[in-house]
């Protein structure tokens, strides 16, 4: 057993972080760094998986074959993103199934946005344009996060997300340029999704209990409020371009700060949804539990079959 001093290890770890050297799975890391990452990456994974549900709602009702094929490909990507992230969680010594059970018992959270229903086809456009747009804003800086496997997973995710956002904007643009009824449908969807999309960046910096430490460890590269501002700045001109109105009467461009001023978020609504009282929270978790429970026999059968075949091969050789 090698003699090691914890404070030496901590100092070396901090030096690496400061020098922008990535931390890899077998490297020594402070227990809280490991815990913070397990929490953040597993919740990110859960968000990808739960995020398939509001979209799956429209697979059978997509307006044409092209839209249906695209939606299926997008949903398959979300599953892939969840899988990259669960693999990254496992490199930290976490048990994959335990993290999933934590989702099912309500111990682990996922993005609050997926607790809103997708009522019309325009909502699928909004999910791509706004929800994936907000996710990209959050995920691009995470490509430089200090933990290697998380950063590498994010590089793959970001490459794939840009198709998601563009296909969503295409849906919204098509509706906005369609009949008066179609345009009204797009505007109604924007009215419902705008504020939940802004809430995706999490509580304000003053209220965010994890931000400061995560910034120091370079897990996070921007604060919630910074990312939210970047998203508003990028998205408002896109809405204007296609003739839709962002539902905020206080929205004005502030020359001095080089960005938009906007109204306060309804934080009561945010905390309601985070704490399990959104429109679809119960339905989402029920769907995930059902998927796990009803799939167990398949997973057991596959394992039994693999074991039987391995035994046969051993016997034959």
């Amino acid at each position: 057993m090698k003699e090691v001093n914890i404070s030496d290890l901590e100092r070396k770890f901090e030096e690496r972080i400061a020098a922008e050297i990535r931390i890899e799975p077998n490297d020594w890391m402070p227990e809280n760094y490991r815990k913070t990452l397990i929490r953040q990456i597993s919740q990110h994974a859960h968000s990808e998986i739960v995020g398939q549900l509001p979209e799956g709602n429209w697979v059978t009702r997509a307006p044409n074959l092209r839209r249906k094929a695209v939606l299926l490909a997008k949903i398959q990507d979300e599953a892939g993103h969840g899988l990259y992230l669960y693999s990254a969680v496992e490199t930290l010594g976490a048990d994959r199934e335990e993290t999933i059970d934590d989702l099912h018992t309500g111990k682990a959270k996922y993005s609050s946005i997926f607790n809103y229903p997708t009522l019309t086809w325009a909502d699928i456009g909004m999910v791509g344009w706004l929800v994936d747009g907000a996710a990209i804003m959050n995920q691009v800086p995470l490509c430089r996060t200090s933990y290697g496997p998380y950063a590498r997973a994010m590089v793959r995710v970001c490459k794939e997300e840009s198709f998601h956002q563009r296909q969503g904007f295409e849906i919204v643009t098509t509706l906005a340029q369609g009949t008066a009824e179609q345009k009204a449908m797009a505007q109604d969807a924007l009215n419902r999704w705008w504020w939940p999309a802004l809430m995706m960046f999490g509580p304000s910096d003053a209220e965010s209990k994890h931000t400061e430490q995560s910034m120091r460890w370079k897990i996070k590269r921007h604060t919630n409020d910074e990312l939210r501002q970047m998203f508003v700045n990028a998205t408002v001109p896109q809405a204007e371009l296609i003739g839709l109105k962002v539902p905020d009467d206080n929205l004005t461009y502030n020359e001095e700060k080089g960005g938009y001023d906007f109204s306060d978020i309804d934080w009561d609504e945010f905390w309601q949804v985070v704490n399990g009282h959104g429109i679809c929270n119960k339905e989402r978790i029920e769907a995930r539990k059902k998927a796990k429970e009803e799939g167990i026999w398949v997973r057991e059968a596959a394992l039994a079959y693999a074991e039987k075949r391995a035994a046969r091969r051993k016997q034959a050789s």
Binding site: Q76, G80, L83, S87, E160, R299, A302
Partner: peptide, 23 residues
């Protein structure tokens, strides 16, 4: 490219195709 869970080698190849080579 990464890692994944699978019951046997054949399933691991098939899953790797779906998870890591969609493009």
């Amino acid at each position: 490219a990464g890692s994944l869970r699978a019951a046997d080698a054949e399933m691991a190849i098939n899953n790797a195709r779906d998870v890591y080579t969609r493009r």
